[in-house]
Design a protein around this nucleic acid. Structure first.
Lengths: 192, 192
DNA sequence: TCTTTGCAAACGAACATTCATTCGTATTAT
DNA sequence: ATAATACGAATGAATGTTCGTTTGCAAAGA
């Protein structure tokens, strides 16, 4: 039963992500969260600062993960179309391996209060700008269809949004198959 | 300034959909909603029964719209691939013409309480089963790729989820272009 | 035309409940 | 014994909703 101090906070964070994902941030009470980790609400505050802190950590951890991912992909010498494929793969991989955290990051960042909301949106904007730049280059080199880059971007971004629902309903847990299927559909969708 | 009784409820419903979409159902208070329509919270109850009633009406109105849409498409004599294209077009059209209501329907149905949640999920299940049947037929006839139908389904469903964000950020309001772009990407993605 | 009646709509005040969080104290482990 | 952790009780704020009353307006009666 005994857990190290730092481990306990991680447990709380993961339980929070799960509840935020299932019920939403606002609809999740600290009593709900406490029950999930076999504590009373007041005891949570020995490990965390506030409810909002949990959301902040979830949102920014994932934002940094995506931002670091796209930056390191962009620094490679891959062709534009290869970069795009790597990006789609990145999204699928993150969505598959950490779908709880990513889902609540995707859906609940709106609940961030200032100044965190502004910071978060700035990171998202940075991410999208790099993504758009790659799309633009790929189009100029004739490697993908000439479709409004913004539409192209959003279509790619949303193509992994359902992974959590899939994992809930389906029997198979075959990561590779899911990843390959998405890659196949999206790549065929944007290629010339 | 004067509005007919039945019109007032529609105004409240639309304001509710907008707030639910922007802040989420749980984070939207009846005082927020009242302010949005220039009333006090207590006055709302001359026009509506409860906060939950608003969510119920939004969710089921859209569920029925999609269910009716897919049924009437399925009753036509179109080929399977044509049915799929019509379905994608249906999603894009609804997303474009009523994106406020559809967005809060997409994101906030989780907040429904029983017995409505069960009813809602049943309608969604019905919808998905018809959709999967069409995908299956299309695959058997060799009209689209042989990808796990469930993955195929979710990819199509999520491909219109971003329309609201796009309309917020972009200058153009060219429905036709958006619709054609999505159709082009998704059709190319699933075709053999 | 002027007054009266009726009614929908708006409101302020109040209610019970739930919320996140704090605090003092008890328990536990080192 | 010291420090970390858990807890119950309490707090103030916010929540959805109800209630009694007032307001504004339209139809009916004089």
């Amino acid at each position: 039963m005994e857990v190290k101090r730092s481990q306990k906070k991680k447990i709380i964070l993961e339980a929070a992500a799960k509840l935020f994902r299932d019920k939403g941030y606002s609809a999740t009470s600290m009593r709900d969260l406490a029950a999930e980790v076999n504590l009373k609400a007041s005891s949570l505050y020995n490990h965390i600062g506030s409810k909002e802190e949990l959301l902040i950590e979830i949102c920014f951890a994932n934002a940094e993960r995506f931002l670091n991912g796209i930056k390191s992909i962009n620094e490679t010498s891959l062709s534009s179309i290869e970069k795009l494929k790597a990006l789609i793969a990145l999204h699928v991989e993150i969505a598959l391996e950490d779908f709880t955290s990513v889902t609540s990051f995707n859906d609940e960042w709106r609940q961030l209060k200032e100044p965190y909301l502004t910071d978060f949106l700035k990171m998202r904007k940075d991410y999208e700008l790099i993504f758009l730049e790659i799309i633009n280059t790929a189009q100029n080199q004739g490697q993908i269809k000439n479709i409004d880059p913004q539409i192209c971007l959003y279509t790619i971004l949303s193509s992994t949004r359902w992974v959590y629902d899939y994992k809930q309903n389906s029997k198979t847990d075959d990561f590779k198959q899911i990843k390959n299927s998405i890659l196949e559909i999206v790549t065929a969708g944007i290629s010339c």
